[in-house]
């Protein structure tokens, strides 16, 4: 860990070459030992996973800048000498943990993490049977005969509502647990852990992260947009694939259906097969769900109002 003599040199603004080498070297050992990702360096644009000395130096600088901003050294004189080295390591590790957390927030739930959670939840809460070399899980003891076909399972779970993951979501495990339970209940069949992972991952609505990535140059996050009740970006994405006629149909179906026409009557009105109209409406609903889930009723109403206006404008 960090030597006290070099910590004192650093704090007094008289860091020597030996001291600097020591600090960079200790940080370098930590980086390698704990396999810290390069994404913890702010504004790092190099996607290679190997750290160069320049990058380690940059990271060291960012760490100390952060530590000074947070007044981490203000009362260093109160810390016992034999604790100072541990303290510096502690704030370094906290800094890295914080950075990694921020990066994960930007990325949402990864497939690997999802697989790890599904596997651990399966072991903790469900019965696992190995059939033909494949691990299946279910909420009770089961035999191979009870396993439904993939198509049957797909159909059974196709109506499940998506589970939103927002930037503010702190812990994924309870959500994954909920998703596994929903899928098993809906499918009413044992499911392989691999398939369960796929389905759970698909069930999550991570549009918050997607939208943030779509417009990389934008500083607005989805949360900020929602906070300001400005859904322009989201609505633009929702209606981007609609032509004038589709916008008119959807506008009438959702917002101007004063006569309360059935889909059959609407199909007659727009002179198209009922199934086509059904498909257009369903597809729009899916897009809607993928891009936006209201936090509360008030916010949902604001969103609907803005969506109605946007559809109306597009149809004219």
């Amino acid at each position: 860990m960090f030597k006290s003599e070099y910590i004192n040199e650093l704090i007094s603004g008289k860091l020597t070459v030996a001291g600097y080498k020591h600090i960079v070297s200790v940080v370098s050992v930590y980086i390698k030992k704990y396999n810290w990702p390069k994404s913890i360096i702010i504004s790092n644009s190099d996607f290679s996973k190997y750290w160069t000395v320049e990058e380690i130096e940059e990271f060291v600088h960012q760490f100390f800048e952060w530590a000074l901003t947070k007044n981490k050294f203000q009362y260093l004189n109160k810390i016992p000498e034999n604790y100072q080295s541990y303290y510096l390591s502690q704030i370094l590790v906290s800094f890295v943990a914080n950075r990694i957390k921020e990066e994960q927030k930007k990325a949402g739930l990864s497939y690997d993490k999802c697989r790890e959670l599904v596997t651990s939840i399966s072991k903790e809460n469900y019965t696992i049977n190995v059939i033909d070399g494949v691990e299946y899980i279910y909420n009770k003891h089961f035999t191979a005969k009870e396993i439904l076909t993939d198509q049957e399972i797909e159909l059974a779970i196709s109506y499940l509502p998506r589970i939103p993951i927002l930037n503010s979501t702190k812990h994924y495990k309870p959500l994954v647990k909920l998703a596994v339970e929903d899928i098993l209940n809906a499918a009413a069949s044992p499911i392989s852990i691999k398939k369960m992972t796929d389905k759970v991952f698909q069930l999550f609505d991570q549009k918050g992260f997607i939208v943030a990535n779509i417009k990389e140059d934008s500083v607005d996050t989805v949360d900020e947009l929602i906070k300001s009740k400005n859904f322009d970006h989201v609505i633009a994405r929702i209606i981007s694939n609609l032509n004038k006629n589709d916008a008119k149909i959807l506008s009438e179906y959702f917002f101007k259906n004063e006569e309360n026409l059935s889909i059959g009557k609407m199909a007659e009105k727009f002179k198209m097969p009922k199934s086509t109209l059904h498909q257009k409406i369903d597809a729009f609903k899916k897009v809607l769900r993928a891009y936006y889930i209201p936090v509360n009723e008030e916010e949902g109403l604001i969103f609907i109002k803005q969506l109605a206006e946007a559809l109306n404008n597009s149809s004219n």
């Binding site: 704090i11 603004g13 860091l15 600097y20 080498k21 600088h61 100390f64």
Partner: peptide, 19 residues
């Protein structure tokens, strides 16, 4: 480790007037 003089100078500057 082979460090840069600039990095050392930057870090020194960061702390020079802090304490």
């Amino acid at each position: 480790i082979k460090v840069s003089d600039k990095g050392l100078e930057n870090l020194r500057d960061l702390f020079r007037n802090e304490f």
